[in-house]
Design a protein around this nucleic acid. Structure first.
Length: 576
DNA sequence: ACCAGGGTAAACATAA
DNA sequence: CTTATGTTTACCCTGG
């Protein structure tokens, strides 16, 4: 990968000549490079090495040695040069911003030379204060908005709500234009020098001045060293500025990561967090995606919940890239199987939370349409719903179903028609759908039957549910046993929870040892109406009592009783 | 490889 | 005619 080739001193000089730098400044520049390199991911090992060698050569040059390397300019070298220039630009940018803030005065005619002006423009006291501020500036956390000069002291002082370790150094009046005002020594006394033990430039017996690392026995010697080696001079001030840039970079990075986190949380937890900054599309490198569900989920423009402006706007149809997080594996395509390997302990506390979760987060509920439809119907007072009411229930209970109406509604209808367990009943007011519980239990007997251990396993592991993977769960305090059903129950105990789960899992029980079948408290057999279409195989009298317990009550949370209609059609709230 | 269950899409019918 | 509601078929995917 890396070639031993290096930039020859001449080349180096070439590069740097643009800036007419003194060797001293050169050194500083190199340090700047170093600092910035740490920030920028693109600059990795390769550049580092290059830089080291550069430095070496530089030293050699100063020592009067003649370079022996050939003068070949490799592509890498070019790249490096570019990088160098880039960094210089960066630096100048920052200087400009500083200048704008009045922190620096740079003479107009003078090319924005990074090094000299600072000393010229600032008086020593200011510099020291500046330095102190910079070195303790890590407390400035809220630097989101502006990319540039997020570090400038003015903003720091004025806008930062975060308590700064050092008191404000600049007085408010001195901020926007003009020079820093000189402050009283008193203020200064608040600085770290008064607290030797916490001096940020001293630690582990070493001077932590950037690029120094001189060993100092004790604090006294450190102070001495500090005063002698890092006195106020061009070099120090330049280094100071480098450090400022470092901090700035870090803050930028922090801001970005914060943004990312915000977007993630917003995406996953719609309402709990506030999407303040309008983020760029997350670019989480991810392995898996919501793929199918995601892509199909948003056909044209992207109907995200209004509350989630953060969501990536890119046409989801394109692809996976965006909505993904590394942790979303288990959410997976909609067609996933639920019988997976989740292993979540059941906690009744989860349930309500889960309901809330699905109400607010656009996470696909890990249930089949059939289960959901049934649930909707059973939750209703009459155990019957019109198609539209079913729709409403879906949108009410699951944020996920507030978009792509065409798709999932079709699926609902499809399921209603397809499954024998759903019975259409002609009512006075039209048709309603009911659930033939027996039929429902009959389906998906699969192979669980006869294997109690398996059943039990499912009970506990409750594979069926958890849509979020462990990581996600960990990160958000919601463990999910999405038993939204229980929310409607008066008092979800683990007992009936288990039965609920069992049922949700599938009615396999009946085939196995149906002894478990919990008596359903109050499920009325069937509305006193006659089914119109009985999809062959009407009732199986054999077992009229299944584990039907789940839904006992009719009314869910009061706040939802009104049939709120979520407009299904994607309102282009966010499009690009 | 096969099969079953589930999701999605779409064609079609019918009633409002 | 349009829309909502149903029905049906086809295809795909996943997991057993």
């Amino acid at each position: 990968m890396m070639t031993p080739q290096v930039i020859t001193p001449q080349q180096m000089q070439q590069i740097l000549q643009q800036q007419v730098l003194s060797p001293q400044q050169l050194q500083v520049l190199l340090q700047q490079q170093q600092a910035l390199m740490l920030q920028q991911q693109q600059l990795q090992e390769f550049y580092k090495k290059q830089q080291e060698q550069l430095q070496l050569q530089l030293l050699q040059q100063h020592a009067g040695k003649q370079p022996k390397e050939q003068q070949q300019v490799s592509t890498q070298q070019l790249a490096f040069q570019q990088q160098l220039l880039q960094m210089q630009q960066l630096q100048q940018q920052h200087l400009l911003s500083l200048q704008r803030q009045g922190l620096l005065t740079i003479q107009p005619g003078q090319p924005a030379l990074p090094l000299q002006p600072l000393a010229q423009g600032m008086i020593p006291t200011e510099l020291q204060q500046l330095w102190k501020e910079v070195t303790s500036a890590h407390t400035t956390e809220e630097t989101t908005g502006n990319n540039h000069s997020s570090l400038d002291l003015t903003t720091t002082c004025v806008s930062s709500s975060a308590p700064s370790k050092t008191s404000l150094i600049m007085n408010p009046h001195a901020s926007t234009n003009g020079q820093l005002s000189v402050h009283t020594p008193k203020r200064e006394s608040l600085s770290h020098e008064e607290h030797p033990h916490s001096h940020p430039l001293y630690g582990h017996g070493v001077c932590k001045w950037p690029g120094c690392e001189a060993v100092c026995e004790d604090f006294q010697s450190f102070l001495k060293h500090l005063n002698s080696e890092h006195a106020l001079d061009d070099r120090s001030t330049a280094q100071c500025r480098v450090q400022m840039q470092v901090v700035q970079q870090l803050e930028l990075q922090l801001a970005k990561d914060k943004e990312r986190l915000q977007a993630m949380m917003t995406h996953l937890h719609v309402k709990s967090t506030e999407p303040k900054t309008a983020p760029q599309p997350l670019n989480l490198v991810s392995s898996v995606t919501l793929s199918k569900s995601a892509s199909e989920a948003s056909p044209q423009s992207l109907p995200h919940t209004p509350t989630t402006p953060t969501a990536p706007i890119t046409p989801v149809t394109q692809g996976p890239s965006v909505i993904t997080t590394t942790s979303m594996h288990t959410v997976g395509p909609i067609r996933r199987r639920y019988s997976d390997k989740y292993n979540v302990p059941i906690s009744s506390a989860d349930i309500a939370q889960n309901q809330e979760f699905y109400k607010n987060a656009e996470v696909r509920p890990p249930f089949t349409y059939a289960s959901l439809i049934r649930q909707a119907i059973l939750e209703s007072p009459e155990k019957q719903l019109t198609l539209n009411e079913i729709y409403n229930w879906f949108t009410r209970m699951f944020a996920y179903f507030r978009r792509n109406a065409a798709t999932w509604k079709n699926a609902v209808r499809h399921n209603l028609s397809l499954h024998k367990c759903f019975v259409r009943v002609e009512n006075v007011k039209g048709a309603v759908w009911t659930v033939d519980e027996v039929e429902f239990q009959k389906r998906r007997p699969q192979k669980i039957s006869g294997n109690p251990s398996l059943i039990k396993n499912m009970q506990t592991s409750h594979a069926y549910c958890t849509p979020l993977n462990a990581a996600l769960q960990a990160s958000m305090a919601e463990n999910s046993i999405p038993l939204y059903t229980t929310a409607s129950m008066g008092n979800p105990t683990l007992g009936n929870l288990a039965s609920a789960i069992r049922e949700e899992l599938n009615g396999a029980m009946e085939h196995a040892n149906s002894n478990e079948s919990d008596s359903s408290p109050g499920r009325s057999p069937m509305p006193a109406v006659h089914p119109v279409h009985v999809k062959e195989e009407p009732l199986d009298p054999e077992e009229a009592e299944g584990p039907l317990s789940l839904v006992t009550t009719a009314n869910h949370s009061p706040d939802f009783d009104h049939d709120r209609d979520y407009e299904d059609e994607p309102v282009n709230e966010d499009m690009e």
